[in-house]
Structure formats: structure tokens, C-alpha cells
């Protein structure tokens, strides 16, 4: 059964005296994918950061499972995985050490799945290599491996917020990631993402910030 996961009402955001969006309202139900589209600078990243509770410079209401984000972010953070623009791995740690740290600070992730996650992103041979010795694409894969560390049992009512997740990833990697997103959504997870690529996932809802 689909549940109302995210409810956005009359969202207004401006940065540097420039209105990014106003009167923005939408709903996201569990088991769905929302692709946020728009030109560069249209506020896609700002919107995603608002949804994660990372940016508070907005007016309006953001509710996750009925909890207003302004009052209660813990409820969201128990269910959230955010992949942002930044590399989000420590260069002086190995891939395994980075993922182990993530599993400890984000309890929804399972440390027992680190190896299978690294296999899924094609980095099993690089598990004990320092990230500073990896290419940009490989570092990105280490970060994306977190999406493979969420146990199936935790899919329901959880949310992935992905900001340009396909950046620096090769064609094979993009296909694997799309498969993973599809599997996640089919099993009750929800995704909000931005990408300039055309997704092969058919059931994507679109939110265009240019309008």
C-alpha cells in the first residue's frame, strides 16, 4: 500500500536576493520516483538540500510522514540516504573504512553488506585501497555503494535523495545504478533525484522548476 511520504506546501526559497521557486507544492508517495528538472541555477540542489533538512533558508512546509521538518528532522534522518554533489568520502581512508564509518553513523545501513556493495559498484578489488589513489569515478562509486548497503527490509518508507547521481559514472555503472533504483522503488522505497540524463525508469514523475 502506498503511503504519503513527503508533502511539500507553498515552498519559497531565495538565494542572493533571487527567488529560486515560490508556491511550490507536491507530494511524494512511497514506491515512487520524482525527477526534479530545471536549468542550471534553477534551484534543484537547493530543493534537495531543503528536503534533507540541510538548508533552512526557506518558507513553507516540508513534512516527512506527517512530521514537520522544522520541528523534527530525526524521523527523516532515520530513513534518508543523501548523495550530494560532493565526493563524501575521506581521501585518507580506504573504500571499506569509508563505508564502515557510514554504517556506524547511519544505522539504517548494514555493515555486513559492505563487501556486496563494493562488488555491486565494481570496486571489490579496491576495497582496501586509499580513496586518494582512486579516480574521480571510483570515488563516486564508493559514495554510491551506500545505496547497496540498505537492507531490503529497510526499503519501505525510506527515501533516497540523489543529486546528479550519474555524474562521472560509466555507461555500465549508470545501468547498474538505474537497476538498483528500480529494485528499490519496486520494493517500497522512494527517490527524489536530479539528473540531466534521460532515465530508463518508466514510472518517473517529473517536477520542472523552470515552470
Amino acid at each position: 500500500m502506498t503511503a504519503l511520504l513527503l508533502e511539500i506546501k507553498d515552498l519559497f526559497c531565495e538565494r542572493d536576493d533571487r527567488t529560486l521557486f515560490e508556491n511550490l507544492s507536491f507530494k511524494l508517495f512511497s514506491g515512487s520516483v520524482l525527477q526534479v528538472k530545471g536549468k542550471n541555477g534553477s534551484g534543484k540542489t537547493s530543493l534537495l538540500r531543503i528536503l534533507c533538512g540541510l538548508y533552512q533558508g526557506y518558507e513553507g512546509q516540508v513534512k516527512f510522514f506527517g512530521h514537520d521538518l522544522a520541528d523534527d528532522r530525526e524521523c527523516l534522518h532515520q530513513s534518508l540516504t543523501f548523495i550530494g554533489h560532493k565526493v563524501s568520502v575521506k581521501q585518507a581512508l580506504t573504500a571499506r573504512e569509508n563505508l564502515s564509518w557510514y554504517a556506524n553513523i547511519q544505522p539504517q545501513l548494514d555493515a555486513n553488506l559492505i563487501h556486496s556493495a563494493l562488488v555491486a559498484v565494481g570496486l571489490d578489488d579496491y576495497a582496501d585501497v586509499l580513496c586518494q589513489n582512486m579516480s574521480a569515478g571510483q570515488k563516486r562509486r564508493v559514495n554510491l555503494a551506500r545505496l547497496f548497503m540498505l537492507p531490503d527490509a529497510n526499503f519501505e518508507h525510506s527515501l533516497w535523495v540523489l543529486d546528479e547521481p550519474f555524474t562521472a559514472i560509466d555507461v555500465e555503472g549508470v545501468a547498474k545504478l538505474e537497476q538498483r533504483i528500480l529494485y528499490y522503488v519496486e520494493n517500497g522505497g522512494s527517490v527524489v533525484l536530479t539528473t540531466h540524463q534521460t532515465l530508463r525508469i518508466k514510472t518517473v514523475e517529473l517536477l520542472n522548476l523552470d515552470n
Binding site: C52, G53, L54, E74, H77, Q78, L80, F82, G84, H85, K86, V87, S88, V89, K90, Q91, Y102, I105, Q106, P107, Q108
Partner: peptide, 13 residues
């Protein structure tokens, strides 16, 4: 700079 700080802040811990 590398984004791990915001990941720490997103922790439910």
C-alpha cells in the same frame, strides 16, 4: 569541503 560533514549531520544519531 569533501561533504562528509553534511553526512555526519544527516545521521539519525
Amino acid at each position: 569541503e569533501d561533504g562528509t560533514l553534511e553526512q555526519s549531520l544527516l545521521s539519525s544519531e
